[in-house]
Design a binder for these strands. Structure first.
Length: 361
DNA sequence: AAATGTCACAACCGCCGCCAA
DNA sequence: GTTGGCGGCGGTTGTGACATT
């Protein structure tokens, strides 16, 4: 038995679409609508399977498709939605205007999934999985092999894996999942990426009892800065302090200044840090990232206040043809490692005032 | 500079579920 | 209840760009 194929495959062209084919498909759909995909190729003069036409249209040619890299907000939304909806890419795509399910699926598999795995987070369950941790990378960390350190590592370009921070990340993830029902309601009732939504979500998460098991950030396992603070950092100390002063939300900076120095990232030009007033946590630390952390939601909402246009798309890489200079305060990320590293850093920051962390110390 | 490896992404395939006829 | 059409999904492949050796 079995089903008949959606079309007669004989004589059907496969592979990449040519501009001419695209034009035919666009012209036809603009004039007639897609109607029946089965009959569309013939009517449009295309030697393609109807399904192929549908995929080409829905995943690439549709006029409302947003091209380019995913923004910070989009990436966070994907992670949050995935924690609630699972692999329902179409449902996730429906909440991300301009993005297709295929695009989101690809992005998940090639970026987010890998990063979660590196963090020891099961991308399926969004729960912590120590067996997923890349222990070798931790063991090879400069923290345990000071002789391997170089300036860039000292400056935080490489991740300084902090198990406690990892715990924080995964705990928050888990708590977020526990609140998934509530979150789902929020997703339906609010616009994603709405700062109000994120602040609410953050509050819900922070109410989780799981927070109680979180050690105070930057207190136990973070290597004292003086151990690593090198000459370069000393030279830049004044600038760092200036930058710090511009980021009043860095709640722990007062008590843990060394941590700040430990994780300072010097971008292409250190003056980037000084001249970039708006990126809060991102400024002067590893650039932007992402993760389904409500802590991060808070980061984002704060960040949004200053820069609504902050976009991963323009940030993750700067193509040679891009006119955008690397002038922002290290909001540019070029590698996944940097993103990981940033994650570990943001977790050291921004514990909301509503939490009296002294209770946990 | 060339060969090789890696990565990201578009596209395909096969299956399944839904729905209308 | 059956059948066919379509959309959605997970898994996979092909290919070009880029990085590394």
């Amino acid at each position: 038995m079995g089903r008949a194929p959606c079309c007669d495959k004989s004589g059907m062209k496969k592979g990449p679409w040519t501009p001419e084919e695209d034009k035919k498909l666009i012209d036809y759909i603009q004039k007639h609508g897609h109607g029946s995909w089965r009959t569309l190729p013939k009517n449009a003069g295309l030697q393609r399977c109807g399904k192929s036409c549908r995929l080409r249209w829905t995943n690439y040619l549709r006029p409302d498709i947003k091209r380019g890299r995913f923004s910070f907000e989009e990436e966070e939304t994907i992670i949050q939605l995935h924690s609630v909806l699972g692999n329902k890419w179409s449902a996730i795509a429906a909440r991300l205007p301009g993005r297709t399910d295929n695009e989101i699926k690809n992005y998940w598999n090639t970026h987010i999934r890998k990063r979660l795995l590196r963090m020891g987070i099961d991308p399926v369950t969004h729960s912590r999985r120590f067996d997923l941790l890349d222990l070798s990378s931790i063991l090879n960390s400069p923290l345990l092999n000071p002789s391997q350190m170089n300036v860039s590592r000292l400056l935080g370009i490489q991740p300084l894996v902090n198990p406690e921070l990892l715990r924080l990340a995964t705990s928050l993830l888990s708590s977020q999942r526990e609140n998934s029902n509530l979150l789902f309601q929020n997703l339906q009732e609010t616009q994603l990426c709405n700062p109000r939504f994120q602040e609410q979500n953050q509050f819900q998460t922070l109410q989780s009892s799981q927070l109680l098991e979180i050690n105070p950030p930057c207190t136990t396992s973070t290597v004292p800065c003086d151990t690593f603070l090198n000459e370069a950092q000393h030279m830049q100390a004044n600038n760092v302090e200036q930058c710090q002063s511009e980021h009043t939300n860095f709640n722990f900076q007062g008590s843990q200044p060394n941590v700040w120095h430990d994780n300072v990232m010097v971008s292409n030009s250190f003056e980037d840090i000084v001249t970039q007033p708006n990126y809060g946590y991102y400024a002067s630390t590893q650039p932007s990232i992402d993760y389904p952390l409500s802590v991060n939601s808070n980061l984002q909402s704060n960040n949004n206040i200053h820069n609504q246009n902050f976009s991963f798309g323009s940030v993750l890489s700067t193509p040679a043809s891009s006119p955008t200079p690397l002038t922002s305060c290290s909001t540019y990320i070029s590698t996944e490692d940097e993103k990981d590293s940033y994650c570990s850093n943001i977790l050291q920051f921004e514990i909301p005032d509503i939490l009296d962390m002294s209770e946990f110390m």
